[in-house]
Design a binder for these strands. Structure first.
Length: 943
RNA sequence: GCGGGGGUCGCCCAGCCUGGUCAACGGCGCGAGGCUUAGGACCUCGUCCCCUAGGGGUUCGUGGGUUCGAAUCCCACCCCCCGCACCA
């Protein structure tokens, strides 16, 4: 960090520039960013999102608002604990990420086996990098989500949510790791990403006094069953399940017992022991032989399936394996198998009676272990599902579509009490800890019931009432609210706050962070030790947050003073609601929408969020940033490489809206160049300037600045950070450059005024450089406490703008002529149109504007011998804006403007320029070009 | 599959809501010139194609349509990115 940066940081800190307290009567802005999770170093993505609020906060401060931009750290959850654990187990990947990417010293990493230490380390370094970047955060309010006082706040929230009926208990199937004794989410998996529990139907075939339980996803095919498959090599068991005697694979027993079935194993045996027996199918009452099928996965569901060879390619091939002798079986079994013929149960367009056979033939499948069977199965299933109609052989299902038949079959089987269900994972899922997962039905889980229609409606109202930047994101909120289902809000493990009424559960990460912005008003007092966790009773928080209760009584009960409670209440009432919450778009489907839900539930409408800011994700050199890809850029790394101001400016200029922000070294280098050349540019410009009266060009510059202020202000109000910063650092700068280039002698006072506005507009983005420049310009006080420039100080001057625009049009035109016309030339004669042509043209413009017939006016031009096509074309080409300006500035003197600019034009065009008035006496016009002159479109003659 | 956002002149990107000012803003890159001992920085001009008088042609994912006129409005299609839940 440079000494200048250190200097200004110290000044800001000493002046307590960013430590706002409530000021009665002063309008406020409360802007926040979701706190980062402290399992790693903060990176450019975090910086990008946070910087948008930082810019906004500084902008609003200049506008005179009392602005609060607080910060906190998220420690809740099991990720931090998980990383510590993995480190402890010696996982080299985690270790390397700590050291090589995050840059943690080795001796520190050793201590990361303690999760609290890990989190506190990252909190410490993240805080420092944010401070070094010059973020205008009020650090007095900082907290961690594991702080005792914050826990009291979460408890308060959940007690109320439960009272309101928004927290309910429920029973759900989850992907479960028996080692971690916890659900295994997608990102906690080594294998099986995206796999979720599927409900299998269990159909009981009578096998003497036992039920042989087959699992299927296609119950509608039951009338086509010809036999039952078991894996001859797998282990099966007899067991008492819910007081019935079942035969299933041994592996299924654990799963069944985890899914609310009462399971008592009796004895186990090999699958081959079942082969040759007969089991009775439900509905049809047919006795079906049990045959050996090696393709049967005994670890999937019950390890028993029934065979529908007409419609299931696997079944067909397994049957043929036996019939054609590829799989040796006993003679008796062979005889039984040989008699089996597929039973078609549905018809589907484009297939024969036995669709499985069609598919198998087409793909050239050779036996039941052929991998192409997967594709064959998918093909047949898809075709039948979308177009199959059940045929007569399916009895009561005849004539139904597959979807209808499924429901009907289940209904019929259920009636015979031969139906059960179990959840199963369609693919292998392995936890990060290496344990194979299965489905467990979790009982008495706590849910936030986001499926509640009334609650949804209220959440929608929150979004209705709020501003959303960009507007395009609003729809996403609505569809998320629509789609959101009950959310499991508590877990068994990890850091966080226990549910106050059920201490076995810890409030899960996304669920403890929904209204915490309210806590920033309290944390200030907690950090000053003016109130402690023990004082933050439900009653005290009811008073602070909802204004409920008598403060004197509440204070007494909470062991604090009435004044203290009133102070905190006042703090909260002043800052709340949140005016802006900005985050990356990935948080819309969860955090931000939860935030809307919880505010809807707990707070009155006037405390609901006022604004949502959404930005895209960060890319690095056009690619998604990731630790494994090796393109990870930490905040600290970028800050040190480019310096605070360039880093900030580069972030500002990266992207707007929901577009992904592409972090490129080149752009950052470019920003660095810009930041570094501002001060020299200003100094050099002022040095060349002189004291003089204003002229048209000064008015032009001032007028341009007026427009730049307007654009930048509007953009900032809508969180279009890129647009605003580009206007300030590119467009405005170009205006000044043009002014200096164009004028013979820059006027000092004009530049001083413009630079004074400029430095203030730059300051939200590049505060260090801005303070420095402000100081150079002799500005009093700190620029971060100055006023955002007002357009009033930079009056619009349409006529000056018009003059510049017309002259540039003429130059452009002339360039074209010079480019096209070859040959030697020394002088460019410019003929400005006559007053008569001008007035005709204005007449034409006015007529056109009123949609009147322009024929009459064109005829008038005929007298002047102007080509009519030229007139009409110009009236289009000139554009609405220019036309409006012309009409509202009829006194605009084009001849005078161009005459005055002839020196400049001559310099620009590299040729002598002579401006003359068409129609005037004694003009030099050998080619008769003056005749064609029109407003803004003079005639040219090159000689 | 469902939901959200996008596809613009080498690259990044503005414009699209409120049709004509759009061959289309700005930045980068590239080319020419200036400045400079040189380099860098900075400044000017150029950067879709054609043109010996300011003109013409073909462009804004693709194909249709509405309109005197469409990058902008409507319809269909193609492609890309993001999210899809017990987790930050």
């Amino acid at each position: 960090m440079s000494t200048r940066e250190k200097y200004w940081l110290k000044v800001w800190s000493e002046k307590r520039a960013f430590e706002p307290d409530p000021v009665e009567g002063k309008k406020k802005v409360f802007a926040t960013v979701p706190f980062p999770y402290m399992n790693a170093a903060v990176h450019v993505g975090t910086a990008f999102t946070a910087a948008r609020v930082e810019f906004y906060a500084r902008f609003k401060r200049l506008q005179g608002y009392n602005v609060l931009f607080p910060w906190a750290w998220h420690w809740t959850g099991k990720t931090i604990v998980g990383m510590s654990q993995r480190l402890k187990q010696g996982d080299p990947v985690v270790r390397r990420a700590f050291i090589e990417i995050d840059g943690v010293p080795r001796e520190e990493v050793e201590k990361f086996v303690d999760p609290e230490y890990l989190a506190s380390y990252y909190t410490k370094v993240s805080r420092q990098v944010m401070k070094d970047t010059g973020f205008s955060i009020d650090w007095r309010r900082e907290f961690r989500t594991v702080d005792p006082a914050f826990r009291k706040f979460v408890e308060w929230q959940y007690l109320h949510l439960r009272e309101l009926g928004y927290v309910v208990q429920g029973t759900h199937p989850v992907v479960w790791c028996p080692f971690d004794k916890s659900p295994t989410g997608d990102h906690d998996r080594m294998e099986g990403e995206g796999v979720s529990p599927e409900e299998f139907n269990l159909i009981k075939f009578h096998l003497g006094e036992f039920a042989l339980v087959a699992a299927t996803l296609r119950p509608e095919t039951v009338y086509g069953a010809t036999n039952v498959w078991v894996n001859p090599d797998a282990e099966y068991s007899e067991a008492r399940v819910d007081n019935e005697l079942w035969v299933v694979s041994s592996a299924a027993l654990t799963k069944l017992s985890e899914q609310k079935h009462d399971v008592v194993p009796v004895r186990s045996f090999k699958g081959s022991d079942l082969v040759g027996m007969f089991a009775m199918a439900p509905l049809t009452g047919k006795s079906l032989p049990i045959l050996p099928g090696k393709f049967v996965d005994s670890s999937l569901a019950t390890g028993v399936v029934y065979s529908v060879p007409a419609h299931a390619p696997y079944d067909l091939m397994a049957l043929r394996d036996i019939q054609e002798g590829r799989v040796p079986v006993g003679r008796q079994v062979k005889e039984i198998a040989d008699k089996i013929v597929p039973i078609p149960i549905l018809t589907v367009k484009g297939y024969s009676q036995v669709p499985a056979d069609d598919a198998v033939k087409r793909l050239g499948v050779t036996d039941s272990l052929d991998p192409r069977l997967e594709a064959a199965t998918e093909e047949v299933y898809s075709a039948e599902f979308h177009g199959g109609i059940l045929s007569q052989s399916s009895g009561p299902l005849a004539g139904l579509t597959v979807v209808e038949a499924k429901a009907k079959a289940l209904e019929l089987i259920a009636k015979t009490e031969r139906l059960s269900k179990m959840f199963e994972l369609p693919e292998r899922v392995v936890c990060r800890c290496g344990t194979r997962c299965y489905v467990k039905i979790l009982e008495n889980q706590w849910f936030l019931n986001y499926s509640d229609q009334a609650w949804k409606a209220k959440a929608r109202l929150v979004v209705d009432r709020a501003k959303v930047f960009p507007e395009g994101a609003r729809e996403w909120f609505y569809s998320t609210i629509e789609w959101l289902n009950d959310w499991p809000c508590a877990r068994r493990s990890g850091m966080g706050t226990k549910l106050p009424w059920d201490k076995d559960w810890i409030v899960e990460t996304l669920s403890d962070s929904t209204i915490y912005m309210a806590y920033y008003s309290i944390s200030k007092f907690v950090n000053l030790e003016k109130i402690g966790p023990d004082n933050l009773t439900t009653g005290a928080l009811d008073y602070i947050l909802l204004g409920k209760g008598n403060p004197a009584n509440v204070a007494k009960a909470a062991g604090t003073t009435e004044k203290r409670l009133k102070d905190i209440r006042a703090e909260f009432s002043y800052w709340y609601p949140v005016d802006l919450r900005n985050s990356a778009k990935e948080l819309i489907p969860n955090h931000l929408t939860f935030y809307a839900f919880h505010h809807a539930a707990l707070f009155p409408e006037k405390l609901w969020p006022r604004g949502f800011g959404i930005n895209g994700m960060i890319l690095v050199e056009g690619k998604k940033m990731s630790k494994t890809k090796g393109n990870f850029v930490t905040w600290r790394g970028a800050l040190e490489k480019y310096g605070a101001d360039p880093f900030r400016l580069a972030l500002a200029l990266t992207a707007d809206g929901m577009d992904d922000a592409d972090w490129r070294d080149r752009s950052a280098q470019d920003a660095k160049g810009k930041v570094e050349s501002v001060v020299p540019f200003v100094k050099k410009s002022l040095k060349a300037a002189t004291a003089r009266e204003t002229d048209a060009l000064d008015h032009w510059l001032v007028s341009s600045v007026h427009r730049r202020i307007l654009t930048a202000t509007e953009a900032m109000e809508e969180m279009k950070i890129r647009r605003a910063s580009a206007t300030i650092f590119l467009d405005l700068w170009n205006d000044v450059r043009y002014y200096i280039h164009r004028t013979e002698k820059p006027r000092k006072q004009t530049l001083v005024d413009v630079f004074s506005a400029w430095v203030r507009m730059m300051s939200p983005f590049t505060p260090f450089m801005a303070e420095e420049l402000n100081h150079e310009l002799g500005g009093k006080g700190l620029v971060c406490q100055a006023d955002w420039p007002s357009t009033k100080d930079f009056p619009l001057d349409e006529r000056a703008e018009l003059a510049e625009a017309v002259m540039n049009r003429v130059i452009e035109d002339a360039r074209n002529v010079l480019k096209v016309v070859k040959g030697p030339r020394t002088t460019l004669n410019i003929y400005v149109c006559s007053d008569q042509a001008k007035s005709f043209f204005y007449e034409l413009a006015a007529a056109k504007r009123k949609d009147e017939n322009v024929g009459l006016v064109i005829k008038k031009f005929a007298a002047l011998k102007v080509q009519p096509g030229r007139i009409l074309k110009l009236s289009y080409e000139i554009g609405d804006e220019m036309l409006t300006k012309l009409l509202s500035n009829r006194g605009f003197d084009e001849f005078r403007t161009l005459s005055d600019a002839s020196g400049f034009m001559s310099k620009e065009l590299g040729i002598k320029v002579v401006v003359q008035r068409a129609g005037a006496k004694d003009i030099r016009d050998p080619a008769n070009k003056a005749r064609d002159a029109l407003p803004t479109k003079p005639g040219f003659f090159l000689e």
